[in-house]
Design a binder for these strands. Sequence first.
DNA 1: CCCGGAATCGGGGTCACGCCCGATGCTCCA
DNA 2: TGGAGCATCGGGCGTGACCCCGATTCCGGG
Lengths: 221, 221
Amino acid sequence: MTTPSLPAQPTVVLVDDHAMFRAGVRAEIADTIDIVGEAGSVAEAIATIRRLKPAVVLLDVHLPDGGGPAVLAAVLDELPAVRFLALSVSDAAEDVISVIRAGARGYVTKTISGPDLSAAIHRVAEGDVVFSPRLAGFVLDAFRDAGPGPVAPVDSELDQLTPREQEVMRLLARGYSYREIGGELFISIKTVETHASNVLRKLQLSSRHQLTRWAADRRIV
Amino acid sequence: MTTPSLPAQPTVVLVDDHAMFRAGVRAEIADTIDIVGEAGSVAEAIATIRRLKPAVVLLDVHLPDGGGPAVLAAVLDELPAVRFLALSVSDAAEDVISVIRAGARGYVTKTISGPDLSAAIHRVAEGDVVFSPRLAGFVLDAFRDAGPGPVAPVDSELDQLTPREQEVMRLLARGYSYREIGGELFISIKTVETHASNVLRKLQLSSRHQLTRWAADRRIV
DNA sequence: CCCGGAATCGGGGTCACGCCCGATGCTCCA
DNA sequence: TGGAGCATCGGGCGTGACCCCGATTCCGGG
């Protein structure tokens, strides 16, 4: 489906909110990559990609107004031929997973050298999936956990809780006292106690602090 | 005390762990700034600054092995003529405060434009203090809280705690109960209570959860 | 129509938490 | 020889957290 077949210089749009970083990337890879456009925000990126239809988008994960995933969500279905390579300072598992799930074809950190980045862009343009060695483990783990995956995102644990219990759970995890939660939800302390007790029992936890960690691990807070 | 008096191009050493970002900065400001050296790590930065004695050091706040403050701590007393301008992606108050307390003469975010950065470097070289407008509030607040402040640099907050109190603090922040801490440190619950009470009072906190957040913000846990 | 789940409260209790006193022994230093 | 700082304990007290019991109301379904 890719229009040409020559391994020539792929066209690239560069998305990063720091103009100075874009200048650095341009200086490093311009000799082997054809940078046809740049963008510094989510809206600008979407418009630029639609207009230029590049072979590859170099996409910063952390952007105002939704970050890289927001760009991907807006453009991916519309332009399936465009490949996205995430480029981020972060090597945190959640950043990697979020942008890969959103549809990126690769993820490299900004510590990468110019030649390596050029090579990665060429590979993504040709259909390969590219990851920094350090990140391979994250990706494998994530997809192993997600299983061969039906569509089920499964919050089987969260679904055990009634709506009201989930509400109380979130406030508990943030460290609110029973009194504060009662004030927030316009119910009495005793009701909060009941919900809290149910939450802890259903989640097989025994203290508020364990709940905090539980919620943090699942990014509920 | 500054050696020359000409407002010529100040000599600058550029410290950032991303070579690509350094390349971008260089491309943007090389016409009005004399970049005499670069470094990508704390150790390299210290050596380079000692060797080149630049007028200004452009210093990334987030570096492996201690970050910008570690560089400042090592070089500031030794080379008081060198001015440091912090350059960071972060506009978090704690980052600003930590590096300013460590001795930086200014703080700008990486969203700054090339010409603005050039101007900021010139101003710092001439002895001015430079802050991005958004950060002025943080700095003013911090120095208002800290009072007219003597020379006191350092982690004034952590240093208020005795060694034993710091030990207890870390366990408290992790959610250990007083009984568990006592078991861990081979002391009685009452002693743990004393230390815990001292910790909370010295840090001006009132609950274990606030301490958890306090420690998390400072990456102590 | 009655049964069960959900949500709302209450009384009672145990224990941890945080704070207020006090006391002892130790080391370091003027 | 003091005194200051640190670490170690104790009693007591008020409050919150968490659990056990029970109770009521509402609503939807067999």
